[in-house]
Design a protein around this nucleic acid. Structure first.
Lengths: 249, 249
DNA sequence: AAACAAATGATTGTTGACAATCTACTAAAC
DNA sequence: GTTTAGTAGATTGTCAACAATCATTTGTTT
């Protein structure tokens, strides 16, 4: 008798909450999120092949939702699909990373200008605390502590810009970039102090409401990051890239 | 006897070419492209509901590839999905459009700077011809001729920037924006001359290789476009019962 | 032994069927 | 007349089976 379900008391147990989740989200969405999490966290490493049946088995769903999730992840740039061969966690080449950094610089420049105009006290406070923790990680030269702080810093700043479309595009770009940076940044402990200084200056510019300065600092911060990355990879000189240009007038 | 297929001579007919296409592209990809075309062209108007079975029937495929295509289109911002209700061609509100314009301005600013640095003679020639045709459409005050020229202009410029990641993100943004602009721009014939002048100045700046100027002009061009749009919308909404002001939620 | 050919196994691409959910309509109650 | 409950139809979400393609191994030939 299905009627019984309606008479159940509102005692939430694991089964009920699972059903509640499914009422709002499709399996495809859940699979997509889980895979995204695994990719972004590095659990699935770049270049790894994603086997439909295997993933479906692990997540206890059929291949349909998995395939749909693959399509979404492909479009968002986290995986690449080869017909009849499968999908693979995207590997971002140095050249691609270089291009993506330019895009990110432009978006971050905009974020800086908007954040300087619109940031709210609570958000500013969060930024200041993150920077404080960054200083600690910086003194300890601890990349594993610094990396998530860096992510959080730019996340908060992105929210402070108060432009949802901008945030969505920014997050996508940063995700792609993180595919590239993870392994590298852990080897670049020496760049942490410089990066921390950048962040501090950015917070000050935003706090002052100096839109032009905040925009330029963020733009340069990203370009600096790109060059640091490049230097770590090839001890060779960085391709000519002028950090000083402002994002957009 | 399926063996016969292997013995067929290499005379291309409709059937063979269809098979050749499928060797390279999955049905999902083809469905995705077709729907994207229909949405961008306006064949499917904003807010329209996309029925899985219906589309599958029209395109002679099963629902699987259609659903996968939906996922990709959702991620690229062309449709919105409501669980158990279906997918709809995305409607971009005025507020969203306003936000997206800001993002586009930042990306276009970057395009301007990069294009000024890297554009090739053939591309510059294409831009000049487009502007010439724009002048013609401008004198005739013909929005239907002007609209595609405008799209093409920015497409060429985007290619000239020589940054693939930038181009991909830019196209996505422009697609979203076009969801909003189509109906509006046709009513704003009076802004065509100003827009044409913008384009001409941009070409000149790019031709001179003046990165800062090209970047600034493009940024301002987009913002101007946003303001023109805003003005058209807020002047016109008169009680006069002229058809259709539904989009602006 | 090296290289090519055929067959086998594994994986992806596609389809149709079934279950769950929503929408629209009818009818009864107030 | 309006509202509410119930039901029938349509639509989406999920799944499992089938077909096509690719990868690997085995066997044959030189």
């Amino acid at each position: 008798m299905p009627r019984a379900k309606l008479l159940l008391p509102a005692l939430p147990n694991a089964h009920d909450t699972a059903i509640a989740v499914l009422r709002e989200h499709s399996l495809t969405t859940l699979v997509q999120r889980e895979l995204e999490r695994q990719i972004v966290s590095g659990e699935l490493e770049a270049g790894a092949k994603l086997n439909e049946a295997e993933i479906a088995g692990e997540l206890r769903v059929s291949r349909g939702p998995v395939r749909e999730a693959f399509r979404a992840l492909d479009q968002s740039g986290l995986v690449r699909t080869e017909k009849n061969r499968g999908v693979f966690v995207r590997q971002v080449s140095l050249e691609e990373a270089y291009e993506i950094y330019e895009v990110r610089a432009a978006l971050d420049g905009l974020i800086g200008r908007l954040a300087a105009k619109r940031i709210q006290p609570a958000q500013l406070q969060r930024l200041r605390e993150i920077v404080k923790r960054m200083h600690a990680a910086s003194r300890a030269l601890d990349p594993d502590a610094y990396f998530p702080l860096n992510i959080e810093f730019h996340e908060v700043l992105g929210e402070a810009a108060g432009n949802h479309a901008l945030l969505v595009n920014y997050q996508r770009i940063v995700n792609e970039l993180n595919l590239y940076r993870r392994e590298v940044i852990s080897r670049s402990a020496e760049s942490i102090p410089a990066s921390t200084k950048d962040h501090e200056a950015i917070v000050n510019a935003v706090a002052k409401g100096d839109e032009a300065l905040a925009g330029r600092l963020l733009f340069e911060h990203v370009i600096n990051g790109r060059e640091r990355l490049h230097r770590v990879l090839h001890e060779a000189p960085v391709p000519r890239a002028r950090a000083g240009r402002k994002a957009a007038t």
